[in-house]
């Protein structure tokens, strides 16, 4: 290994990891907030969370953290391909989470396109996309918790 080679393992709690966590938490919160539940279930009554009942605000925050998340994802994937692929490989848990994230990105981007003026999807297509996006989000949360509890890392070192 060269002296100047990146020594950090992708499982370390780096700045990227914290940004990923923050973006995931806010994406999940604002994503579920697209359903009319926060006002009904008093979440928006919690001091400091009144904004959570404003669908346009949660929509904007969802977009902002989607951009942050896409930036992180692109960085992590290319960092892996360029620098770490010879030393680290995805675990099964990492593979499942990556596949779910790929699905979330694909459905999310299609929903962004759907929101543009002049674009119309048939009802079945919009409903399918929205349900798929929500289901994948729940699957990612579940996979994240399973990984946390079972201490399943994203990658493992190649011997």
């Amino acid at each position: 290994m060269k002296a100047n080679e990146d020594q950090s393992g992708p499982n370390r709690k780096t700045l990227m990891w914290y940004l990923y966590l923050i973006s995931m938490v806010l994406l999940a919160f604002t994503g579920f907030g697209q359903m009319p539940i926060y006002k009904r279930y008093y979440i928006s009554d919690i001091p400091g969370l009144a904004w959570s009942a404003d669908f346009y605000t949660t929509h904007l925050i969802h977009y902002i953290f989607s951009a942050l998340f896409l930036g992180i994802a692109a960085y992590v994937v290319f960092d892996h391909l360029l620098l770490k692929k010879k030393r680290f490989a995805l675990t099964l848990s990492g593979f499942i989470r990556s596949a779910i994230i790929a699905g979330l990105v694909a459905t999310g981007l299609l929903l962004v396109i759907y929101n543009f003026s002049g674009v119309a999807f048939p009802m079945w297509a919009a409903a399918t996309l929205l349900v798929a996006h929500m289901t994948l989000a729940m699957a990612l949360i579940a996979a994240g918790f399973i990984a946390l509890i079972g201490r399943k890392p994203w990658v493992r070192a190649i011997n």
Partner: peptide, 16 residues
């Protein structure tokens, strides 16, 4: 929201 969509295109480029 739609104006912010540009950020969604730029962010991955910045990450790469």
């Amino acid at each position: 929201g739609n104006n912010l969509a540009a950020a969604l295109a730029i962010a991955p480029i910045a990450g790469i």
